[in-house]
Design a protein around this nucleic acid. Structure first.
Length: 259
DNA sequence: CGAACGACCTGTTCGC
DNA sequence: TGCGAACAGGTCGTTC
């Protein structure tokens, strides 16, 4: 489920370990991934998150773009232990190695030129002018939840956090974006930052596969109000949480207090 | 052009 | 218990 808080967690955990280190070896164990061994011998100059991607900058202006999709995770091993099943690639350093483990094999790793593209995509965990959102969303006709998880506008929100954000903001996921007032967008932006920051502090949400770099579960699953809580009482009004499909995704909400 | 849907994979859970 | 269907964090390409 790696969404923004989970990738941010990995990013922060990786920085002190691999920054300024040289990549000692790179081994691909899944034929679905392209073989990119040109990174061997290169030094890591920065590790940043962009949306749900992890970008590792190498010397000589290249960057590795890693995306974990649904079930991908990274595991640090400081000494050689057995490889867990579903290990898809290994990035080795002199003092340890990073394993990418991914049962569903959707995760990707790509080497790209470090050409500066100006991306105007909003990072929802940072301060940003809400009028930007209001301008884009005001002319659209689609459910507000679909808008929140569309990575072209806000980068980093996925299904779990979209459900939680709309619950906290008391907004029905099926509301059309153009019907959401500027004041409501402000509320969405505020609760989004609160939830994402809290989830980062909890090192993510482990409802299933997710583990951090050191194999530990996150803690935010203990704070979920609606996600995967169909039939449980709404913490606000005590009516039952419902689950319905919205463009193919399981959507959890309180029909009584999300208007 | 934009939105909906299936595809990409594998593992787990649910219902009969 | 056993088996098939439905479902799962995300994105992409095709279709309407």
């Amino acid at each position: 489920m790696p969404e923004l808080p989970e990738i941010e967690t990995l990013c922060r955990q990786l920085q002190p370990i691999i920054l300024n280190e040289k990549i000692h070896g790179f081994e691909v164990l899944d034929s679905r991934l392209g073989n990119i061994d040109t990174m061997v011998g290169r030094k890591i100059t920065s590790v940043v998150r962009k949306g749900k991607s992890l970008e590792i900058e190498l010397d000589k202006s290249d960057r590795l773009i890693l995306h974990l999709r649904m079930t991908g995770r990274f595991q640090w091993q400081s000494s050689h232990q057995a490889l867990p099943s579903h290990t898809r690639f290994i990035m080795a350093f002199t003092h340890g190695r990073i394993l990418c483990i991914d049962p569903r094999r959707f995760a990707t790793v790509n080497l790209r030129d470090n050409v500066c593209r100006n991306n105007s995509v909003i990072d929802p965990s940072q301060e940003y002018p809400v009028s930007e959102l209001w301008k884009i969303a005001g002319v659209k006709r689609l459910p507000v939840k679909s808008f929140l998880i569309d990575q072209r506008f806000l980068a980093g929100i996925g299904n779990i956090y979209a459900c939680e954000i709309l619950y906290e903001a008391s907004i029905n996921p099926w509301r059309q974006t153009f019907s959401v007032s500027k004041q409501e967008w402000t509320r969405i932006a505020t609760v989004t930052q609160d939830i994402l920051h809290r989830a980062i502090a909890c090192r993510g949400t482990s409802v299933s596969d997710w583990r951090d770099l050191f194999g530990n579960k996150g803690e935010y699953q203990n704070e979920l109000k609606v996600y995967r809580r169909e039939g449980y009482p709404c913490p606000r009004c005590h009516d039952a949480i419902h689950r319905m499909r919205l463009s193919g995704r399981g959507t959890y909400f309180c029909p009584s207090c999300q208007i």
